[in-house]
């Protein structure tokens, strides 16, 4: 089973993409992806409740294909985030939380920790667009939460320092690294597995921003075992979400 843990639905003027849930499922089908774990862009940057409702309805239409992240804007962490998490869990069965760090609005603030604690209480993994330094603080403060570092440090925000992300994951067993990125440094996945194992690496594409075939090839074309590829492509996420349990 292939699960894509990093998918955006909606319209983004900043990143120049627009995709409906049906568009995303078509892309998933074209690339052999069984399930997509989705965050709504409107919820992340414009209207939290409107965006989460839009995604929630898509989850209801495609419960066997779409997993939903409750998206929480950073400035909303102490402005209704906990209630929104509970609402989206109960109304739509959402399974994860998406949070986002910006250069001028960092994630690490006192109000993020209750969000992480609530995620842990619901057994929801958190996809955090963040830096290694921030992830270390968050993982140390709330080690019972499953924190997935989006892009594994391969962002401008994180200065492209994926080696630093690996070091952070070495020190914090609850920190997982998600693969989506336009960076495709040869040997990076092999190195990461050597240092932290394949069990804490999560496959993502960042569709519809990034080319799905490139993100697939980053894992399928790496010099790693098929067993490790299977874990990264979906086994690890299935374990996190207790599929089949």
């Amino acid at each position: 089973m292939i699960i894509d843990a990093h998918v955006h639905v909606g319209v983004s003027t900043a990143y120049n993409f627009a995709a409906t849930a049906d568009d995303l499922l078509r892309l998933a089908d074209e690339n052999g992806i069984d399930r997509i774990f989705v965050t709504d862009f409107t919820a992340l940057v414009h209207d939290m409740r409107e965006g989460n409702d839009t995604l929630g309805k898509a989850v209801r239409r495609h419960p066997d294909r779409i997993l939903g992240y409750v998206s929480i804007p950073t400035m909303n962490f102490d402005n209704g985030a906990l209630e929104e998490i509970d609402r989206c869990v109960h109304e739509y069965g959402m399974r994860g939380i998406k949070i986002y760090s910006y250069a001028m609005t960092p994630l690490v603030r006192p109000s993020v920790f209750p969000v992480m604690e609530r995620a842990a209480s619901h057994r929801m993994p958190i996809l955090a667009h963040s830096t290694a330094e921030e992830c270390e603080v968050m993982a140390a403060q709330v080690p019972e939460a499953f924190l997935m570092m989006a892009h594994s440090g391969n962002t401008a925000l994180a200065r492209g320092d994926w080696l630093r992300a690996v070091q952070a994951a070495e020190r914090h067993p609850s920190l997982l690294l998600e693969t989506a990125s336009s960076t495709v440094n040869n040997g990076s996945l092999e190195y990461t597995i050597e240092r932290i194992g394949a069990e804490r690496i999560i496959f993502g594409t960042d569709m519809p921003l990034l080319d799905v075939s490139v993100q697939m090839a980053r894992v399928s074309g790496a010099a790693i075992s098929q067993a490790d590829k299977d874990l990264i492509f979906g086994g690890n996420m299935a374990r996190l979400l207790a599929f089949g349990a």
């Binding site: 495709v184 440094n185 040869n186 080319d211 490139v214 090839a217 980053r218 399928s220 074309g221 790496a222």
Partner: peptide
């Protein structure tokens, strides 16, 4: 492709697909 600094499979896949 950016061989060998970037994964060759990535550079080729985007053209193949």
């Amino acid at each position: 492709v950016g061989i060998p600094l970037q994964y060759p499979a990535c550079g080729i896949a985007k053209l193949e697909k």
